[in-house]
C-alpha cells in the first residue's frame, strides 16, 4: 500500500495518565452525555461541546500491516462542526422539520455503552485526551438491534461545571458498517 501524507489522524499525547478523580469525573460526564444522545436531545448536547468543536470519523480500513490504526488517514465517513450539527442534525428533531426528516421519523432507538475510559494529560493545562470505547445498540422501527462500536478519542477541556468536548475522533472497529443509520454521533 502506497503511503500518503496523512490528512486525518487520531490525537495523541506523550503525557501520562491523569488522576483517578479525573477518570471518575470523565466517566460521570460521559454517562450524562450518553443520556442526551440516546434520547436525541442534540440541542442540549451542543451545550457540552466547544465553539470550535469538530467531529470526525475516518473510514475504517484493514491493511496488510500488523502495526496499523485500523482506519484510512485520507477518507472520512463524517466531518461535522458545531454549526453543521446544529443546523443539519438538531433541526431534524424539531416540530418544524421532523415529519419530513424521514430517517428520523420515527427516530432510531439508541442505547450507548461507554466504557474503558482512559484520560491522559496534554501539553495544555486543563485539557485532556480521553479515550473510551463506545458501543451503540440501534433499533430502527420494529427491526432487530444492530450496532456501531469503536474507540473514541476526545479532547476535553475542564471547566467549572465539568468538561467541554473540543473534538471527537472515532475509529470504528468494523470495516463494513452494518447499521440502520450511519449518520450517528458516536
Amino acid at each position: 500500500m502506497t503511503t500518503r501524507t496523512p490528512r486525518w489522524q487520531h490525537p495523541q499525547t506523550s503525557h501520562g495518565r491523569s488522576s483517578n478523580d479525573t477518570h471518575v469525573a470523565v466517566g460521570i460526564f460521559y454517562a450524562y452525555e450518553a443520556e442526551l444522545l440516546d434520547h436525541w436531545d442534540i440541542s442540549s448536547w451542543l451545550d457540552l461541546v466547544s465553539e470550535d468543536f469538530v467531529y470526525r470519523v475516518p473510514v475504517p480500513l484493514l491493511t496488510d500491516d500488523y502495526n496499523q490504526d485500523g482506519y484510512d488517514t485520507q477518507s472520512l465517513l463524517m466531518d461535522e462542526d458545531r454549526s453543521s450539527i446544529e443546523e443539519n442534525w438538531a433541526a431534524r428533531m424539531t416540530d418544524e422539520h421532523n415529519a419530513v426528516s424521514w430517517a428520523d421519523s420515527p427516530p432510531v432507538r439508541l442505547l450507548r455503552l461507554v466504557s474503558s475510559v482512559r484520560v491522559r494529560h496534554t501539553d495544555h493545562e486543563g485539557e485532556f485526551l480521553a479515550r473510551s470505547n463506545v458501543r451503540i445498540l440501534m433499533v430502527r422501527q420494529s427491526g432487530a438491534a444492530k450496532e456501531m462500536f469503536g474507540e473514541r478519542f476526545d479532547i476535553l477541556r475542564s471547566n467549572d461545571e465539568g468538561f467541554t468536548i473540543a473534538s471527537r475522533f472515532v475509529v470504528l472497529t468494523s470495516t463494513i458498517i452494518d447499521a440502520p443509520r450511519l449518520r450517528m454521533l458516536l
Binding site: 488517514t73 472520512l76 458498517i177
Partner: peptide
C-alpha cells in the same frame, strides 16, 4: 484521484 479508501456499508 480518490480521496482515500471507499466506505463499505450494508
Amino acid at each position: 484521484e480518490v480521496m482515500g479508501a471507499p466506505v463499505r456499508s450494508r
